[in-house]
Amino acid sequence: MLASLKGVSQVILIENAWTGFIIVIALATVHVKLGVIALLSAIIGTLVGYLGGADKSAVHQGLFGFNAVLTGLGLSVFLTANLATILGAAALGTLCTAAFMHLFKRTNIPVLTFPYTVVTWLFLLASYHLNALRLDPGLIPQDLAHWHMNTAGEIDLASGLLNGIDQVYFQTGFLSGILILLGIFWASWRLGLLAVMGTAIAWPTAYLMGAEITNLNLGIFGYNAVLTMMAVSSVFHTRERPALLVGLLAAVSTVPVTAGLNTWFQAYGMPTLTLPFVIVTWIFLGARQVLPKL
C-alpha cells in the first residue's frame, strides 16, 4: 500500500506515502469516485510492476504507479466508461511506462508522464469508433479557420494560481488545491516553494502574452509549469542547490508550448494533458547533458 500511495505522489514528482494519502483525500473531497479511482489505479500499476518482475526499488518508489493514476483520472474526467475499462487502461499505462523505460534507458532521460498521455489519447480517440466509450461533450474538434479567441472575463488571480497546482490532478477546487499544496509541502518545503514559483511565473507570463482569461482562471497554463519547475530545478538536478533560473526559464517556456499544442490538438478535440511538461523537461534535461552548467 505504501508503494501505491507513493505512486499517487509521484504524479507530482514526489516519493512520499503521506503526500499520496493527502492527495487521495484531496481528490475525494471533489468526488469520492476520483479518490477511489486514483488509489485503485495506483494499486494496479504497482501490482503490474511487482508481478511483472520489475526492479523492486523502482516499484517501492511508486514509479510504476503514477502513469496509471493519471490514466485512470484522465479517462474518468474526459470519458464515460465502466470501471473495468478505466482500470484496464491504467494497467496499460503501466505497461507503456515499462516499455518507454526500456527505450529510454540509455539516454539518462526519464519517461515522465509521456506513457499516460499516449494511452489517454488513444482511448479518447477510440470513443469515435467504440460505443462503449463516450467522450466528454466539451471535447469536440474545432475548425481553426473559424475559431476566435475570447479574452473577455474577470480575472480571478487567487483561483488561477491555486488551480495551476490543482490541475496536475485535473481539479479546480479550492479545498483540493490547498490539500494538494499541503501534501507537497509535507514532503519538502523546497518542492512546495518550487511548485508555487511555477504557477506564479506561468500566470503573468500567459497573461502578458494575451491568454484567454477563462484559461488563466482555470490554471490551464499553470500545471505544466509547476511540474517543469520542480523537475528541472530540483528533482532531476544533481546539484544540492536548486537551479532556480534555469527552472524559471523552463517554466516560462511551457506557456507558449502549451498554447501551441492546445491549438494543434483542439482541431482533434483532444486535451493537451501534460505533453508541454514532457517536451520542455526533455529539452532542458537533454541540453544539460551537453551543457552541464545549466
Rank of each mutant, 00 (worst) to 15 (best):
F104L: 07
L144V: 14
C96W: 11
I12Y: 01
T97H: 12
K56P: 11
Y128Q: 11
F104V: 03
M209S: 13
A132N: 01
G153P: 14
Y207P: 04
A84E: 13
I44S: 08
F66Q: 02
W282K: 05
T205S: 10
I178F: 11
E154R: 11
V232D: 08
A99Q: 06
G138T: 08
P204G: 13
F21M: 10
I109Y: 06
S233M: 11
G93R: 00
A54N: 06
T85V: 02
N215I: 07
A90F: 05
A54P: 01
V226S: 02
V246W: 14
H129L: 03
H146S: 11
T46S: 11
G7D: 02
H129A: 05
G198C: 15
L122T: 01
A99K: 04
L157C: 06
A98W: 11
L162S: 08
V30D: 12
L5D: 06
Y128F: 12
H237V: 06
A54D: 03
T120C: 04
L194Q: 08
L139D: 00
G286D: 11
Y50M: 08
T94L: 06
Q266I: 11
M1H: 13
W264A: 15
V118H: 07
P271D: 10
G52L: 15
G173P: 03
L63M: 12
